[in-house]
């Protein structure tokens, strides 16, 4: 599993979807289910945080090159 902070929003959300799907559709041991749930919660919080703090990143080219 990738570190949370390295995930893009889409990756995190897709994983959250997958976690919910697995919990819904697959028989898992209680321990596995709990681990999935915890991962899901972390993902959900991470997604919320990304959305809440989202700020459009704007860069501009100067003379054809990125103005870093």
């Amino acid at each position: 599993m990738k570190k949370i902070e390295e995930l893009t929003y889409e990756e995190a959300f897709a994983e959250l979807e997958a976690v919910v799907g697995t919990l819904e559709n697959e028989e898992k041991t209680l321990e596995e289910s709990l681990a999935l749930f915890e991962r899901g919660q972390v993902l959900s919080k991470y997604c919320s945080r990304l959305l809440e703090n989202a700020e459009l990143r704007v860069k501009q080219l100067v003379d054809g090159d990125l103005d870093e």
Partner: peptide, 17 residues
Amino acid sequence: ELSGANNHYTEKLREQM
């Protein structure tokens, strides 16, 4: 819409657990 979807899955996650 993303926020709504996220809330939806978060809720589902809790329900399922």
